[in-house]
Design a protein around this nucleic acid. Structure first.
Lengths: 209, 209
DNA sequence: TATTGTTTTAAACAATTGTTTAAATTAAGT
DNA sequence: ACTTAATTTAAACAATTGTTTAAAACAATA
C-alpha cells in the first residue's frame, strides 16, 4: 500500500511518525531508515542529515497544526460560534494526532535546536478579521476584555492538555483507554461551556457611553 | 556552597536538574557526571546505571509534584476556598519548577521505560475527605456534578499548560520573558475565576426532594 | 547496445554511547 | 603504624551514534 509512494516520500512519512512519537533525541538514524524500509545511507542521500530531515518534518507538522485553527477564524460565524467550533475542531484534530502537542512543546523547548520562526502565523490569523470582531464585541460589552494571548491560552490549555496528560491521568486514576476516551468526550463539552460562559457572561454589563 | 554535600548528594542534585531540563534520552552519562563535577565512573559507582539514577530522580520529582497538591486538600477550608488555594499553590509551584510538567508528561509517555506506579497517590487524596466534601456540595446543589477526573483535568490543564507552552506562546506572540510573566499572572486570576464560577454556578439550582 | 545520470546498497569512518576495570587515593578502626 | 574498607581516578571496553564512501544496480536516452 505504501509502496506506491516514492522512496523520498516513504522516508518522510515514516520519519514523521517516528519523530512525533519519540522526539529528535529519542530516535536514531537507523531507526528512521528501518521504519521506512530503507537504509541509513538512503535517508542521508535524500535529506543530507538527521537534523535536516527533522527540520523539514517539524515545519510541516507546525503547518498542519495551525491550518485548521486558521480556517475556523476565516469562517463566516459569530465570535461565540467560532469559539465553539474552534474547540470542536481542536478536539477532532487532537483525537487524530494526540502526540503532536507533546512533540511541538518538546522540540520548541530544546535549547540546542535551531530557532524556529512562527511569527508568520499570527498575521494570518489577524488577517481573518477575528481580532476586530473580538474588539467590537468587547466594546459592546458582550465579551469579556481578554486579549489574544489570554484567549489562546484558555482555549488550547483546555483542549491540548487532556491529550498531553493522558498517560499521567490514566495512571493516576487507573483508567483504561476506553474510559479515558469517555472522559475526553465529556470534558470537551465542559470546556466548551465553561470558556464560552466565561468569555460571554450571561448577564452582559451595560457599557453605553 | 554545594561542596558541603556528599558526592552522592551532589550527583543526585545535578542529575535532577539535567534530567528535568533535557529528559532521559536528551542527556548522556558524561553530561550527568560533569554537571556534578564528578566523572562517569563515580556516577555508576553510586547509582549503578544511568537508568537506575533516572528512576530514583523521577520518583522524587513525582513526590514533590503531588506533595503540595495533597497538603491543600488536607487543609481546613471550604471546597471553593480549597480550589482557589489549590490554583494559587499550583501556580506558585510551577513558577519555581516550570520544567516539571513537561518532564513528567514526557517520561510517562516513553514506551520503552519501566512502568511507574502512581496508584498510591489517589488514596492519599481520598483520605483527606475532599471527595466526601465534594459529593456533599453536589448533593446540596452548590456544586456542579463533575467527577474527580473532570475536576483534576480542569485545574491542572489551566495551571500547567501555560508553563508547558511557554516557548510556543512566546514564539507565536513574540513575547519577552517579562511580558510572558505578566500574562501568566493575569491568567492565574482568570483561570481561578473561570473554574470557580463554572463549578459553583452563581445561581444554584434548587435541588430539594 | 553503449552511455549517460540516478538510485540503492554494503561497508566503513571517527566520535560518542553506557558501562566496567583495575589501580590509586583517602578514611577508619585497631 | 598497619590493615582493611570505602572512595576516586584514568583508562579501557564493546556497542551504537551520525555520516560518508565507493561500488553496484537501475533507468533513461542515444
Amino acid at each position: 500500500m505504501s509502496s506506491s509512494l516514492s522512496t523520498e516520500e516513504k522516508i518522510k512519512a515514516a520519519a514523521k511518525q517516528v519523530f512525533i512519537s519519540k522526539g529528535f533525541s529519542g530516535c536514531t538514524s537507523r531507526e528512521l531508515a528501518k521504519a521506512s524500509g530503507m537504509n541509513v545511507a538512503l535517508v542521508n542521500y535524500y535529506f543530507r542529515s538527521k537534523n535536516k530531515l527533522f527540520q523539514l518534518i517539524f515545519q510541516t507538522v507546525m503547518e498542519e497544526f495551525f491550518e485548521s485553527m486558521v480556517s475556523v477564524f476565516s469562517s463566516d460565524l459569530s465570535l461565540k460560534e467560532k469559539l465553539k467550533f474552534l474547540i470542536e475542531r481542536e478536539y477532532a484534530f487532537l483525537a487524530k494526532h494526540p502526540e503532536i502537542p507533546r512533540f511541538i512543546i518538546n522540540e520548541l523547548s530544546r535549547k540546542d535546536t535551531d530557532l524556529i520562526e512562527l511569527t508568520h502565523v499570527l498575521p494570518v490569523i489577524y488577517n481573518t478579521g477575528v481580532i476586530e470582531q473580538a474588539i467590537e464585541a468587547q466594546k459592546k460589552g458582550e465579551m469579556r476584555r481578554v486579549d489574544m494571548v489570554g484567549i489562546t491560552l484558555l482555549v488550547i490549555s483546555n483542549c491540548q492538555y487532556p491529550f498531553l496528560a493522558k498517560p499521567l491521568i490514566k495512571n493516576l486514576h487507573n483508567l483504561s483507554d476506553e474510559q479515558y476516551q469517555q472522559h475526553l468526550e465529556l470534558h470537551k463539552g465542559m470546556v466548551s461551556e465553561m470558556i464560552i460562559s466565561y468569555l460571554f457572561p450571561p448577564v452582559p454589563k451595560p457599557n453605553k457611553k
